[in-house]
Amino acid sequence: MNFRRLLCIPVTCLVLVTGCEVPQPQLSIGELVARGQEGDAAAVVELVERVDSNTPLAQRAEAYKFLLTTRLGEEAIRKNFEDPDPVRREQALTVGAARKVPGIFDAAVKAIADANFSRSNAAAWTLGELGDVRAVPILFSALVRGAPDLTAREAARSLGRLGDNSAHILSTRMGELKGASLGYGLRVLGELRVEGTKQTLVTALEDPATRLDAVWALGTMGKVGVPVDLTQYLDDPDWLVRVEACRAVGLLSDKSAEPLLDRLRREDPDLSVREWAARGMALVTGEQESYLDENGEWKTPKGLYH
């Protein structure tokens, strides 16, 4: 037996041993969380990498809640900021926002504009959660795009969270918004309650397409700035506008609306309007008010309003 043959024996053994190595069973999400709670950084990294679109919601939630409580796994989270798996990317962005992971703002800016990222609503939420005013034009652009609708709505809500910083752009560039986004923008402007933006809502009253949202917004805005007479919309041909006008004059405690509300709660051909007229009147008078139901009997509205 020559030297070359002798050498083959240990090499062959080594190959056999390696080949026979029993694969370690993969740890469950729960086990990784448990190890992470004990400070096992490698387990936390694996946890971040493991969660994806195929992970059941309960396990995703378990992993997510744990990741909010630890400082471990930051680099793994950052690595997933642009992951092609939408769930993994969503998790990285939202955990990143909660933990203020470095680079999260830029990652969210990129994600909200990424047409291939189906969960860009998570990016819109992230920008609102971070509270950085640089996000205002970014969120407004998402609102202008209008799609996906869930992202546009979340962008509107985040603009609302950024407060007065959002009011100016919404007010001056409202004309860029179309369709559902226009309604979202008007309503958020109402929730922001900034006096200088009130005229934008008043202007929107003139267009039947935006009147409903404008009436809602002006009611929500409350007694800010110069009073606006909304009582004329109590007779609007659109019954939904009449409903919102009943709510709005009630929220504004507009005493002048009381006789009109009293008439509507008795006579409006639409039952929903009669019901909301009673709610609006109750807000004005501070007393419980009733309306005539479909059987001509007095009835107290179901539910309260504010």
Binding site: L57, R60, A61, E62, Y64, K65, L68, A152, R153, E154, A155, A156, R157, G160, A180, G183, Y184, G185, R187, V188, E191, D213, T220
Partner: peptide, 12 residues
């Protein structure tokens, strides 16, 4: 946090 949730709303 962790629940599955969605609401009918208009961005408000």
């Amino acid at each position: 946090v962790g629940d599955l949730y969605g609401r009918y709303d208009k961005g408000t």
